[in-house]
């Protein structure tokens, strides 16, 4: 237990920050773990044939890692009560250089025993998720 209580937090406070580097290996690993084998996540030729710049990260992979800094902060994945995102921008993953993403988690609102954490996830200076909100139990 981390001993986090709503009274110890302020709206706007940054509770966690982290950087993630995705490689093509990360996408293959996520495809296998999740069962999402859509070829736009590992084949440039297929991605380009449907009008994409190249291989993209799975949106659900981005959603999956973006909440991890919050879990590390609160200390227990079972304290996540609700988690939602909107996929607003694709994340192209270069075969050689991969893709670097940054996550900032801030207190959005406070209740008696829950707190809403708002995530900002950026790639190349722009956000890739909208309305990324995590409701966390702090009881």
């Amino acid at each position: 237990m981390t001993g986090v209580t709503a009274a110890s937090l302020e709206i706007g406070q940054v509770v966690a920050e982290a950087g993630f580097v995705l490689s093509r290996d990360s996408l293959v690993r996520y495809a296998g773990a999740s069962g999402d084998f859509n070829a736009i996540h590992y084949r440039d030729d297929i991605a380009k044939s449907v009008g994409l710049p190249g291989v993209l990260a799975h949106g659900m992979l981005t959603m999956g890692f973006a909440v991890q800094p919050v879990i590390d902060w609160i200390g227990d994945p079972g304290r996540i009560l609700d988690y939602q995102v909107r996929f607003t921008r694709p994340v192209p993953v270069d075969a050689a250089d991969g893709a670097r993403l940054a996550v900032v988690a801030k207190v959005g609102s406070l209740d008696v025993d829950t707190v809403r954490i708002d995530l900002t996830v950026t790639f190349d200076g722009t956000t890739v998720l909208g309305k990324a909100q995590v409701r966390v139990s702090v009881a």
Binding site: R29, L61, G64, Q68
Partner: peptide, 17 residues
């Protein structure tokens, strides 16, 4: 092991996973 595999794939480091 599926939980472990998925955890690694989403960069989870929580010992509980």
């Amino acid at each position: 092991e599926k939980v472990r595999e998925f955890s690694r794939a989403v960069f989870a480091t929580s010992p509980l996973s």
